[in-house]
Each structure stands twice: as C-alpha cells, then as structure tokens.
C-alpha cells in the first residue's frame, strides 16, 4: 500500500485527470496532476484499483468521458439551433473546447451556457469577412442563451402590465417626461442574421437553410411562461434601448435620433402612438412613471 495522501490531493488529482481534454493518460502526466500525486500512467494502480474486468485507466476514463459527454449534451439542449447549424460533430468539438475553456463553477447546469456566445466571439476566425458564417453562429448562440435566461428568469406573470389606456391619462405637455418601466424579462438583441426564424424552424423540425444576412432587431420577453420574440424597426429599437437604459421619453427620443440618419425625427413623431399601443398590448412594460408621481 502507498502512503496515505490527503483527501484534498486525491480530489485535485482526480479532477485534473478526468477533465483533461487529451484524456486520462495526458491528465496523469500533466504538471498540475503531478503536483498532487506524482505518478506515471504505468503506476495508476497505486491510486485507482482495477476491477476483474477493467483496468484502472479504463475505469477512470468512464468519468473522463462522462464529464465531457454530459456537459456537451446539456449544451446541446440549451443550443439546439446552434447544434443543428454546426452539425453534431462540429458542435461537439466547439462545446468541448468551450467546456475546457470555461468549466462550470456553479451548482446549477443553468449557468453552463452563459459564456458560450462569448467563447465563439473570442475564437472567431479573423480572416472571414463580416457578417459571415461565424457571425451567424455567434448570433444564434446569443439568441438561444437569451431565450434560456428569459425562460427561467424573473417574468411578468404575476405582475400588472401597462395597458393602452394608462397612456391616455398622461397630460400631453408632460408626455416627454414619462419613464417606461420594463417587465423584468424584456431583452433587446441586435443580430446580423434572422436567427430568430432559424431557431423557430429548428425547434419545429423544419431543417432550415442558413439564411442570408439581414439586420435583425429583436425584442424578446416572456408571457404566460413561454418566451416570445418579435422584430422592430431600427428607429423603434433605438428608442426602446434608450428607454430601457432609464431615460425619459423625451431624452430617449433625442438619443435615438442621434444614431439615426438625419431626418428621422419625423419617423418618431409619425409612429410614436402606434408603438405605444403595441408596447402596451405586447406586455413589454409594467407602467409609466412621471418623476413627481
């Protein structure tokens, strides 16, 4: 029998070995593992016992395979459209790389996909012109992660939401002062491809083709516990963004107009009341507030 080592050393060694991307043998030979237990692959039986049917290394490999397989499978459930777009094998190798790069540090599998879109952004091949195939994948991963967060995060179901008539009681001279309070699930997302349609098609088993690039401005929220998404125009999107950032309607219009082409002021004026009606009926806001109320 070998000398008793600490539980901590054994655990650090096991974790290092079974999460090593190149497998058990490479894990055992890695400096980090050797810092805990200094053995070679040939001496693995000094730590892990063989069974009558299976060697120590194969036994430990059950955990190594399971580690990646389980997390890749969970990511596949969170990112079904990204998986479909990439194909099983490529998705597997991307998520394998991701898990290796960003191992889980949460008690919940719900956090597992948190950084996946960022990982795809960080590893985007720089020689592909934008918007290209990598950008489609990044947008897909972003929208799927957003759906997951909106689905299980705080929602509007037990809250009163803004009604069209709530806007009619605002004195016209004070309309520019109002602040819209969004429902907790409201999210805006800008994509270079119509990824929302792609995701829906995959979820309906329609095997969609990769779409052509098209500016896509998404509003994502939840109603009756189901994620809802829709698209808006550039002007409406910029206005919503400024409103969600906490600006009053007047300030928001100014900020939105700044990033719009000259002459778009008319677009705001012409559409504002229609937008308000839609925001209220779509349940995007809880209420409007006047600073002194």
């Amino acid at each position: 029998m070998t000398k008793q080592r600490s539980l901590q050393s054994l655990q650090r060694w096991v974790q290092e070995v079974i999460t090593h991307p190149d497998g058990i043998a490479a894990g055992i030979e890695s400096p980090t593992a050797k810092q805990q237990i200094d053995i070679d692959v040939a001496n693995i039986e000094q730590v892990v016992e063989p069974s009558s049917r299976l060697g120590s290394r194969e036994r430990l490999a059950v955990y190594g395979n399971a580690y990646f397989a389980r997390l890749v499978e969970c990511l596949g459930e969170e990112f079904p459209a990204t998986r479909f777009a990439l194909g099983e094998e490529t998705f597997e190798s991307f998520t394998f790389g991701y898990v290796n790069d960003s191992p889980s540090s949460s008690y919940s599998l719900g956090c597992l996909g948190e950084r996946f879109a960022q990982y795809l952004t960080d590893t985007r091949p720089s020689d592909v012109p934008k918007p290209g195939w990598p950008d489609f994948l990044i947008d897909l991963a972003k929208v799927e992660r957003t759906y997951a967060e909106v689905f299980d995060g705080p929602g509007p179901e037990n809250l009163d939401t803004l009604k069209p008539e709530d806007l009619q009681v605002i004195p016209p001279e004070r309309v520019s002062e109002i602040r819209f309070v969004p429902v907790p699930s409201l999210r805006l997302m800008e994509a270079a491809f119509p990824v929302h349609e792609y995701v829906t098609a995959v979820r309906r088993d329609r095997a969609p083709e990769i779409p052509m690039p098209a500016e896509t401005l998404l509003v994502i929220t939840r109603r009756e516990f189901v994620v809802r998404r829709g698209t808006v125009s550039r002007a409406e999107f910029q206005l919503l963004r400024a409103i969600i950032d906490g600006n009053s309607l007047g300030q928001a219009i100014e900020l939105a107009a700044e990033v719009m082409p000259a002459g778009s002021d008319d677009e705001f004026a012409a559409n504002l009341s229609e937008w308000f009606q839609h925001w209220a009926s779509a349940g995007w806001f809880l209420r409007v507030e006047l600073s002194d109320s």
Partner: peptide, 21 residues
Amino acid sequence: QGPRRSATVPQPAVFVAAEVE
C-alpha cells in the same frame, strides 16, 4: 476508446430546456 461523447451518459444530466413561442 475515449469517445468524447457516447450514448451512455451516466446520471446526473438533468437540464431544463426553454419553451419558445
């Protein structure tokens, strides 16, 4: 054989997937 992924994933692997309109 060290497949990164096989059909036999030991428990636990319980993940909640989103419902989207």
